[in-house]
Every structure is written in structure tokens, then in C-alpha cells.
């Protein structure tokens, strides 16, 4: 059995160690109180989101940052590559034949942002590169249906369809002459 003296010494050492380590922790945290830390350490790290002072606005996000999607409908050829590859099936594309054989009228191009997981596969396979990620990250809405963003040119009426078919035939007739 160790002698009483050594156990008392061990006890006092334990108390001393405890108090010393508690104080070192306190004095490590103290400089933050007076903003004396070096480098960018001293300033607050958290930011109040709506305040304009927030440093992380959309423009200084990195270039590859994947935000909400945007499709430039003029360049979009309606090839539906993005619709096939999307894992969560949130892109719906519907085409109509345009006035000329080569032109396609993309009637409906909806992206359901509430189901999109921002994986970026659709942007990767888009040949005309019309579908891109913007830097916009504020995707809050009151109803999930408001999150369905549509880029389509709009559905066409049956009369327009017959009219365009007539124009196409006329053009083909001209070329065959």
C-alpha cells in the first residue's frame, strides 16, 4: 500500500492538474473576447443571412458551384438527353414539329426543382450546352408546385399545328423542284 504521504501528494497533484488545465482552456478562449487572435481568426464566422453584410453572396461562389438550373430555350434542340439521364426523373420535355424540318418547337421543358438533387449530370450531357447551373441558391417557395420551373415555349393549338404542317410541305415542295 503506498504511504499516506504519496497518496496525499498524488491527490494534490490531481487537484493542481485539474485547475491548471481548466485555466489553460479558459485563457485559450479569452483572446476571442477581445478579438486579439491573429489572422482572420478574430472576426465572427457566422453571418446573419438576410443582412447585406453577408459575404457569401451569389457572385463570389466558386465558378463550378451548382445552383438552380437554367435552360436557354433558343439553343435547346429538345433532344431529351437530359430527361433520360436524370436519376430522379425531374425533367419533362415535350416537342412539337417546327415550321422547318430541322427546327423543333420545344413546347414544354419543366424542371421540378423540389426533386432535383443538383447532381449536374443533365448539364454534362447537354450537347448544345443550353442547360447550365446558375449561382442562384435561394430555392424557397410556399408550395412544391411553385418549384417547378418551366422553360418551354408553350403548347401550340391544333390549328397552329396544321398551319405549320402546311408550311413544311410547301418548303419541301420548293426544295424538290
Amino acid at each position: 500500500m503506498e504511504s499516506v504521504f504519496t497518496s496525499v501528494l498524488k491527490y494534490l497533484r490531481e487537484v493542481y492538474l485539474g485547475v491548471k488545465s481548466i485555466l489553460t482552456s479558459c485563457f485559450t478562449a479569452l483572446p476571442y473576447l477581445f478579438n486579439r487572435r491573429s489572422g482572420d481568426l478574430h472576426k465572427e464566422v457566422t453571418e446573419q443571412y438576410p443582412d447585406p453584410v453577408s459575404s457569401r453572396t451569389a457572385d463570389d461562389l466558386p465558378s463550378r458551384s451548382r445552383g438552380l438550373l437554367f435552360n436557354d430555350i433558343d439553343r435547346c434542340t429538345g433532344c431529351k438527353a437530359c430527361e433520360e439521364i436524370c436519376p430522379t426523373k425531374c425533367i419533362t420535355v415535350e416537342n412539337e414539329l417546327g415550321t422547318e424540318a430541322s427546327k423543333v418547337w420545344v413546347a414544354v421543358f419543366d424542371i421540378d426543382m423540389s426533386r432535383c438533387m443538383f447532381c449536374g449530370l443533365c448539364v454534362e450531357v447537354c450537347i448544345p450546352q443550353s442547360l447550365v447551373h446558375t449561382k442562384e441558391y435561394e430555392g424557397a417557395a410556399y408550395y412544391p408546385r411553385d418549384l417547378v420551373i418551366s422553360f418551354g415555349r408553350g403548347r401550340i393549338t391544333p390549328e397552329q399545328r396544321t398551319k405549320w404542317a402546311a408550311i413544311r410541305q410547301a418548303k419541301e415542295a420548293e426544295e424538290t423542284l
Partner: peptide, 14 residues
């Protein structure tokens, strides 16, 4: 931030 700079997303990199 480094991960976002390189891959475009902080957590699910893809």
C-alpha cells in the same frame, strides 16, 4: 469551401 471550389458542391460531390 475547398471541396466546393473543386467539385461544385460541398457534400455530395458527384
Amino acid at each position: 469551401d475547398l471541396l466546393e471550389l473543386q467539385t461544385g458542391s460541398r457534400a455530395s460531390l458527384n
